[in-house]
Nucleic acid binder design. Structure first.
Length: 646
RNA sequence: GCCAUUGUAGCUCAGGGGUAGAGCACUUCCUUGGUAAGGAAGGGGUCGCGAGUUCAAUUCUCGCCAAUGGCUCCA
């Protein structure tokens, strides 16, 4: 007999070799039907595997993230079985569960697969699922595993087996499909009641662009049809928040094939919004002791040879432009830091001057691969809210914290609550990707990690994500459909100061090397605005939104009064408009609601005689009548509140 | 850059070997209306670009460009 400890602390005795599924059945048949897998002593295993010694047990169902994982991983196998039915000889790469569903990478050989083929694969999956196929785990010796996939002709699985140790290899068999797999899996296919294959994409084998591209099919499954429907509705809702869609609706930005792909054109309303953001940050930076600088959009190739950018990215950049007579070569600037280093070098510095903080909304140009371009989040020309802090080594931490404070001020003002912090270090196994000495890297990485610890900020450490000249702390935010984007970034750099031979005179009258901190709290204006649009669904905070107020006269007769209201608001520095179209009030309200204008002021006979305005708030409705003074006061209060800095 | 899909009016989209249609938007007129769409008339398109097949191509084929979903990349 063995003792099984349940999550609530209860302990029960069972016969040795009992399975989680049998334990569940002993509790209730309904529970057994819902068990997808089991967590035994912290490890997720098949609910059908025997438990041979005392253990803690948690039965995993659809309500547990691990239960969902099991279901989706098993669904990938089910999809593979269906694919194999239609495309015998298809070879399979990897097929894991992911955050929302699963995928499988498949080599279809010469056959072309398109989205039109997904329906039949889906239907077959449902048909197979109804057969209640059992997932059967088998331990296989390495030679037997190799033999099986050699006979099947699946070189991908053979490559995976090569890397496994004999004695650790398991196969899972369900229906007619057998896969190399660690598991765990469902007891059988019956929980899979709803299937949706979402999209099809190319994916390089093992993520290596030099290797063959396989066909990746993404899908998701649910234990209830209604849950699938809910999921699809949610997906649709998320797409409505897409910044590309809202950007078009609200006339914020556009692209032109003639101007060039990845080169955004900011429309008046978008420019208005962006300028407000810039003014906000400029004010914060002024208080934090930054000095604005301005540098040109191009720089001599020698500048980038010095910085190391030429070696690292020269071949993958927009190629240099050259002067017609002298033949000098200039690159469009991909970074502002080399220019700022030269500003630092324009005169000698004493330790007494440090830290020096040069700030610039610097527009940079980077050649991004065409397939990577994406709305405003990934573009070829963009403006960084860049600054470079030159400081002494013992000022690094304090300066770093100062920058973090600015990032937090911004995130608070814009109500970004669900960001994550990532510390990006270099890949210790791939040091040739980076410039600088080990000693400098260690110093820089240590500084960032210590700051994170001292400020109590929860950060995920990711190796291999550092910039080529230094480690960084990135602030990540998700977009409407769950993609992660880097916004703010703070980077500690001991390397560029060396390359540019930056110096300051210390109190010892000796020359010393400053440390550089690169930082951009927004990241880029383009990406920040994109994410802001998706977070707010276009309903920007009042202080930021391009049109704050729209005045809706009931009819032409009240045009004069509307103009009076307009000039009052204008004098109060509110951004207002009059909708003087010959339309009914209902229509004007509808349009203003759709344009997400925060306040509508309806003016008619009553308002004119009483010298009032009828206030309607976007998304909320009628707020009643008030004087213009009271309205302006209310609006200013709302603005002040959201811009409060503490 | 790679794989798949898509490209028709300012926007959203229908159509399809015989040179095009809807709704919204726009212009004009009527209407002067009180909290999410008043009515009528009108203008607007080299059907992404280029070649090929055909008596005839927006439609079929190929190439290019761009967008979308992924992969790779991201100073």
């Amino acid at each position: 007999m063995i003792n099984i400890t349940f999550p609530d602390g209860r302990v029960k005795q069972y016969i040795t070799g009992i399975t989680a599924l049998e334990i569940a059945l002993g509790i209730s048949e309904g529970l057994a039907r819902n068990v997808l897998s089991a967590k035994v002593n912290g490890e997720v295993i098949d609910a059908t595997r025997p438990i041979n010694s005392d253990a803690s047990l948690q039965l995993l169902t659809w309500n547990d993230p691990e239960g969902k994982s099991t279901m989706w991983h098993s669904s990938a196998h089910l999809m593979a079985e269906s694919v194999e039915h239609f495309y015998p000889g298809a070879k399979f790469g990897i097929g894991p569960d992911i955050e929302n569903g699963f995928y499988y990478d498949i080599d279809f050989g010469e056959r072309l697969i398109s989205e039109n083929d997904l329906k039949k694969i889906e239907d077959k999956m449902l048909e197979l699922a109804r057969e209640k196929q059992k997932y059967i785990r088998k331990e296989v010796s390495k030679p037997d595993a190799v033999k099986y996939f050699t006979e099947k002709g699946d070189e991908y699985k053979l490559e995976l087996i090569e890397e496994l140790e004999d004695g650790q290899i398991t196969f899972y068999e369900s229906g007619k499909f057998t896969d190399l797999c660690r598991g765990p899996h469902l007891p059988d296919t019956s929980p899979i009641k709803a299937v949706k294959l979402l999209n099809i994409a190319g994916a390089y084998w093992r993520g290596d662009e030099k290797r063959k591209q396989l066909t990746r099919i993404y899908g998701i499954t649910f234990p209830k049809k209604s849950e699938l429907d809910e999921f699809l509705v949610k997906l649709e809702e998320a797409r409505k928040r897409d910044h590309r869609k809202i950007g078009k609706e609200l006339e914020l930005f556009t692209f032109s094939q003639k101007v060039g792909q990845g080169l955004p054109l900011w429309l008046p309303k978008g420019a208005q919004l962006r300028e407000k953001l810039e003014q906000f940050l400029k004010k914060v930076q002024k208080e934090a002791g930054y000095d604005p600088v301005i540098t040109p959009h191009i720089g001599n190739v020698e500048l980038y040879k010095t910085s190391g950018h030429f070696d690292k990215y020269g071949a993958d950049s927009f190629q240099p432009i050259s002067t017609p007579i002298e033949g000098e070569q200039f690159f469009l600037k991909p970074m502002n830091c080399p220019h700022h280093c030269e500003i630092y070098k324009s005169k000698p510095h004493s330790y007494k001057e440090l830290p020096i903080r040069y700030a610039e909304f610097g527009t940079v140009y980077r050649y991004e691969q065409s397939g990577e371009l994406h709305g405003l989040t990934r573009v070829r020309g963009f403006t960084q809210d860049d600054a470079h802090i030159f400081c002494t080594p013992d000022q690094v931490k304090e300066e770093f914290k100062g920058v973090m404070k600015i990032v937090m001020i911004i995130f608070k003002a814009l109500e970004f609550n669900n960001f994550t912090v990532q510390i990006s270090l270099r890949d210790p196994n791939n040091k040739e990707k980076y410039i600088g000495t080990d000693e400098n890297w260690e110093k820089a990485e240590k500084a960032i990690i210590e700051v994170a610890e001292e400020t109590g900020l929860e950060a995920e450490i990711v190796l291999g994500e550092a910039a080529f000249y230094g480690p960084k702390m990135d602030f990540m935010v998700r977009d409407a459909i769950g993609r992660k984007w880097q916004l703010g970034t703070i980077q500690v750099d001991y390397n560029l100061p060396e390359r540019f031979e930056l110096e300051y005179k210390g109190s010892d009258n000796e020359k010393h090397r400053p440390v550089m901190i690169h930082r951009a709290p927004f990241g880029s204006m383009e990406r920040f605005v994109a994410v802001l649009i998706e977070h707010t669904a276009g309903k920007f905070p009042l202080w930021l939104t391009p049109d704050q107020v729209i005045i809706l006269p009931i009819s032409e007769k009240f045009q004069k009064y509307a103009e009076k209201v307009f000039s009052f608001l204008n004098n109060a520095e509110l951004r207002a408009q009059i909708d003087d179209r010959s339309e009914k009030t209902g229509k004007k309200i509808r349009d203003a609601e759709l344009m997400r204008i925060p306040y509508m002021l309806i003016v008619g006979e009553q308002e004119e005689t009483e010298e009032l305005v009828a206030v309607r708030k976007q998304g909320e409705g009628d707020k009643g009548k008030m004087t213009l003074q009271a309205f302006v006061q209310m609006v200013n209060k709302e603005i002040e509140k959201s811009l409060e800095i503490n």
